[in-house]
């Protein structure tokens, strides 16, 4: 580790976890929060329970969970140990990094015994909007009004479209809209004459 960069302290707890939690906000809070695929954060959690044994056990591990992964795999977990953790620490603190490592996200805490060390926006706040010039809430409504078959082509438009189409939020909104579709029923034709 070089001077000035973030480093794993001597008393580093046994486990560090980089936790990518995608916060699926409820319909009620959706207006005020960014859409789900834009709120992914890399959160570094330290296991406080292990801090007492920090000196005896020098082994570090780091894990990444992601409930929504951009490439479509459902839930993913990766682990690293030792030097890889240190390398990652250096990367996260790199002044060239666009992300703000100390920015706290809205991710929920997975374990009360763990302490949030840092949070890094997964995709960054410079994530391009779905349709330039339109708020993402409206763009999402537009995508929900498309036939599902169109999603295959729409997925290829850009990364943000792909992420939106993979996201479960879209299907939840679709489902809600599904119940509200009104079906027009034409009046039964009247028969003026008796059948012969």
């Amino acid at each position: 580790m070089t001077d000035g960069s973030w480093h794993v302290p001597e008393m580093l707890p046994v486990a560090l976890a980089l936790n990518a939690v995608t916060h699926h906000s409820s319909q009620r809070t959706r207006q005020s929060n960014p859409p789900a695929w834009r709120t992914g954060n890399l959160d570094v959690w330290a296991d406080e329970a292990g801090s007492g044994r920090g000196r005896t056990s020098r082994r570090c591990s780091i894990s990444v969970w992601s409930s929504t992964v951009l490439r479509g795999k459902k839930a993913e977990r990766r682990s690293w140990r030792g030097e890889e953790v240190l390398k990652m620490g250096a990367f996260l603190s790199s002044p060239n990094s666009k992300n703000q490592p100390w920015e706290h996200g809205e991710a929920s805490k997975p374990d009360s015994s763990k302490k949030l060390l840092m949070s890094v926006p997964l995709s960054g706040y410079d994530h391009p909007s779905l349709i330039p010039g339109l708020p993402d809430e409206i763009s999402l409504q537009i995508l929900t009004r498309m036939p599902r078959m169109g999603y295959l082509n729409a997925k290829m438009v850009s990364r943000s479209w792909e992420a939106a189409i993979i996201d479960a939020e879209l299907y939840r909104v679709r489902k809600e809209l599904g119940g509200k579709v009104r079906i027009a029923v034409a009046p039964a034709p009247t028969c003026d004459h008796e059948p012969s």
């Binding site: 391009p128 409206i138 537009i142 995508l143 498309m146 036939p147 082509n153 729409a154 438009v157 850009s158």
Partner: peptide, 27 residues
Amino acid sequence: AVQRTADLIKGKTPEQNRETFGIVNDF
């Protein structure tokens, strides 16, 4: 308006959609 925009998207190739909405292909 939402339905009209959705109708504009459907049945188009990704490239046509990018042109219509000014989206940059970042793949």
